[in-house]
Nucleic acid binder design. Structure first.
Lengths: 334, 334
DNA sequence: TTGTAGGCGTTATCAA
DNA sequence: TTGATAACGCCTACAA
């Protein structure tokens, strides 16, 4: 069961622990003979340095933590992919926690990662209706972290998307196509993104003198199934909106699924748009593209700068643009 | 920067390190007064035990590693979700490595995880055309691990899918619907699943006295884009197959995408089937369903049994069934 | 060029 | 009921 240690190697080669350690760490000042002897023994016995013992002394565990909401969602797995790649480039391993939108899991896992002395954390926190004690604690402990999204009043590194503007863009696109009765499907209550998108939507409507009816807004959609529900409600509705904005493409997929099986045509009978512009979408859905993969890489890049920095640099606070990608899920009413 | 330690707590409370440690670990035999003093101090200073130091003594790091090929693929992120959930139930944290089908990354990351003394590993290894030294090394070191898929000649815990039979099922389904010219899109060369599915396909064809033409098999599709390529080739083809079996649903999506934009109708002009039965699929694709989420949970369950077991138990070797889900992407030629 | 000693934060053992 | 000490595996000084 036991992994071989430096002490074992020392015993085997008849050298001192420090000598073995020195050779293994490529320090200079050892004879070729000792060097060879150590390396050979290490190789032969499959020695893998105990990083965790090493981490005790050396300040770095070469590990970062990543906390997201749902690994199953393309939005988050693209971010994960970006983070992972940059981490690998730095020789780092990443702890993954998919909180499933459960705040307690998020807190527990962050604490566990702190316990495991990660060198830094990337967190896509639940941003609404929860407390941020675990995040503040990170700052207090001076543990490097960077956030996806910002927390009002917390000065730290973060990357966020301009959800408000993205939402204004789609909404205006619909309005420009003559839509007046526009519905909206919000995401999780704990999602800042959802709040901003909804706000952008309302503001854009208002700015065009359009009003929205309460029946046309659907709340708290999370999974594809919720989208199907919304679709079914829509189908059963007498006074249907002519267009619907979905919190994300996954929800939109659900709506499409429901509509297709009910014979409701998109965009003929209903115009539909979403957010994320996910790849796994064969339907020509007009969507707001979000640079998730790039964001993942950027989050990691910023985190590593913070981890390796000598003097405390300015906090990096980046807002990434969202871009409307027009396809053919919106009907022109003109 | 520094996290508070037990020694700090000892100094603060005026107690001995061992006393503090004892209280913190809920050992019996301490006065209520000491107990309270320690707990209060710990709380006040936000003490988080250094798991990595703890791991030095206690044999367990409460960490497992998970190595998959592509976190972006629904197949793997469902598995990841299952693993994650079971790990969390046990209070474990999981290291994630998405190798990107790169064998060197897989080997490097496994080694890194071993270095970090994970209590166990779940690996979905590249299974064809590569060496398994890193896996054998695990066994030699008696580090618990469970595999997704089996390695011939290696006795270990594993969970695998019956890809061969799944493939036979779809192929026969197509044949039963009167298809004779059936094409096939293989996955990565390093994928055992791909090999088995292809073999199942060929055997089923053979068993029905059907032959396959080389032009109708497309190799090494990996991403959605590759599916699009295949679709485009198909469109340009004179002697097109009447049906196409794709290595997975993502590839099938690509084919659908290509066909839709070229005006080729499915199933009217081409019957199409895939594997995985992914959720994010609005097209009514007939597909071979694979219990990925359950497999993830099972993999983790088996791993934890192995980690916590007292005596060495039998190796668990499970083959999970694949099940054909018929929708409407196959046209009946009768 | 190599060896000895001490420390990192924790737990376990044994003594007080 | 509490405290001192060693040990886990490694690294860094410093001494030989």
């Amino acid at each position: 069961m036991m992994n071989i240690t430096i002490a074992d190697l020392a015993r085997i080669t008849g050298l001192a622990k420090s000598t073995v350690s020195g050779v293994l760490n490529n320090k200079s000042g050892f004879s070729e003979k000792t060097r060879a002897k150590v390396l050979e023994a290490a190789e032969k016995h499959g020695y893998v340095p105990n990083e965790i013992a090493r981490g005790l002394t050396s300040k770095f565990t070469k590990t970062i933590g990543l906390v997201i909401k749902d690994i199953t969602n393309p939005f988050y797995n693209r971010i994960t992919k970006g983070v992972q790649e940059v981490a690998n480039e730095h020789g780092y391993t990443v702890f993954l926690c998919s909180s499933g939108e459960n705040h307690m899991v998020e807190v527990t896992q962050v604490t566990a990662m702190v316990g495991k002395r990660v060198d830094g954390l990337i967190i896509a926190p639940l941003l609404e209706g929860v407390d941020f004690d675990h995040i503040y604690e990170l700052k207090r402990k001076k543990i490097p972290f960077t956030l996806l999204g910002s927390i009002p009043g917390l000065t730290c590194d973060y990357v966020q998307f301009d959800d408000y503007n993205g939402s204004i863009q789609v909404t205006n696109h619909l309005i420009a196509n003559g839509h007046k009765k526009i519905g909206f499907v919000t995401g999780q209550r704990t999602s800042r993104a959802s709040k901003l998108r909804f706000q952008g939507f309302k503001d854009a409507m208002m700015a065009s003198g359009l009003s929205l009816s309460e029946e046309h807004v659907f709340h708290e959609a999370k999974h594809l199934e919720d989208g199907v529900d919304v679709g079914n409600q829509l189908i059963a509705m007498k006074d249907r909106p002519t267009a619907l904005i979905c919190f994300d493409d996954v929800i939109a997929m659900g709506v499409i699924k429901a509509c297709e099986s009910a014979g409701l045509k998109i965009p003929e009978d209903l115009s539909l748009v979403g957010f994320d512009d996910i790849e796994l979408m064969i339907f020509p859905l007009t969507s707001v593209s979000i640079p998730t993969y790039d964001a993942g890489k950027l989050l990691a890049k910023i985190l590593f700068e913070r981890i390796f920095e000598e003097e405390v640099a300015e906090y990096r606070q980046v807002t990434l643009d969202e871009k409307l990608v027009v396809r053919s899920s919106v009907k022109s009413l003109h």
